Amino acid sequence: MPSSSDTPLLQRLEHLSAPELRRLLAEHLTRRKLGLTWERDAIAHDRALNADVVLPRLVPEWSQRPEGCSQHANLVIEGDNFDALRLLRATHAGKIRVIYIDPPYNTGNRDWVYNDAYVGANDRWRHSQWLEFLYQRLSLARDLLTSDGVILVSINDENRARLELLMDEVFPGRRVGSFVWRSRTGGNDAKGAFFSDNHEHVLVYANSGFRFTGDEKSYSIYKHEEGGRVFYLSDLTKAHDYRERPNTYYPIHDPLTGIWYPCNPGRV
């Protein structure tokens, strides 16, 4: 005979006492994980994309092959990124070293489509749809990376926190860090707060074998050494004139000689 624990919860609720209901609620709340949650069960799961596997079609007139080369590794796929990622997982799983993506930023300005419909700022499930949209694609991208592979994802200030938690969900323990990308020059008054929002972010997650590589640091530019430290002498001025930076335009006084050294009007 099945125990009470095997009975569907909804059928058991009407037979539970008040203390039992309180205990059940407490268990439910304490079982919740710490982190990002979204309404995955309350929205469509990309049914339109999951219904069928879309196979690519080669366009010969768009293809270029170097003379004498039977095949090469370059490939351009045009189409929905979900279909492309599923195709690549079948052919390139564990073979991609670097992935860079620039996903929709979920600004509410009709900047992305979910299940063939634009998602606007007033959509009740906008953030959940955006998270589910990215979760499915990031999960596929994760399976493409080599053991030393890295994925870099651009995002704005508004949605960085959500995306970072989602990346932690998909790539647990693989956070490397982030870059701040200056995406514009010249200030702008963000939200009327006299705050210049001229940057975006690039989040970096990687598998355990990943390392940033580059040229070894060169000390050839340092001409002086003192106390075990190397340094070089440099001009202390900046490329602004006295009209642009009047508060930093002033002569230098030598306290030993009493001499005042005037400034270059073109520098501060």
Rank of each mutant, 00 (worst) to 15 (best):
S4R: 13
S5T: 04
T7G: 02
T7R: 11
P8L: 05
L9A: 04
L10T: 02
L10Y: 11
E14M: 03
S17T: 14
A18S: 12
L21V: 03
L24T: 00
H28E: 14
H28D: 13
T30S: 09
R31I: 09
D41V: 01
I43R: 05
A44E: 15
R47L: 06
A48H: 14
P60G: 00
R65H: 08
S70I: 07
H72Q: 13
L75Q: 11
E78C: 02
D80F: 00
N81F: 01
D83R: 02
R89C: 11
K95N: 13
I96C: 14
I99T: 05
P104Q: 05
Y105A: 06
T107D: 03
N109L: 07
D111F: 02
V113C: 12
D116Y: 08
A117Q: 15
Y118H: 09
Y118Q: 11
N122K: 10
D123A: 02
D123L: 01
W125T: 01
Q129W: 03
F133V: 01
Y135R: 06
L138G: 00
D143S: 05
L144G: 01
L144D: 14
S147K: 12
V150F: 13
I151Q: 00
I151S: 00
V153A: 01
S154F: 08
E158D: 11
N159T: 09
N159R: 12
A161G: 11
R162E: 14
L163D: 04
E164G: 03
L166Y: 11
F171Q: 00
P172M: 10
P172W: 05
V176M: 13
G177E: 14
R184D: 14
R184F: 12
G192F: 10
S196R: 09
V202S: 01
V204F: 07
A206G: 07
F210P: 00
S218Y: 00
I221N: 13
G228K: 01
G228W: 14
F231M: 10
D235H: 06
R245H: 15
Y250D: 03
P251Y: 02
H253P: 13
L256D: 15
Y261T: 10
R267C: 06
R267H: 12
V268L: 09
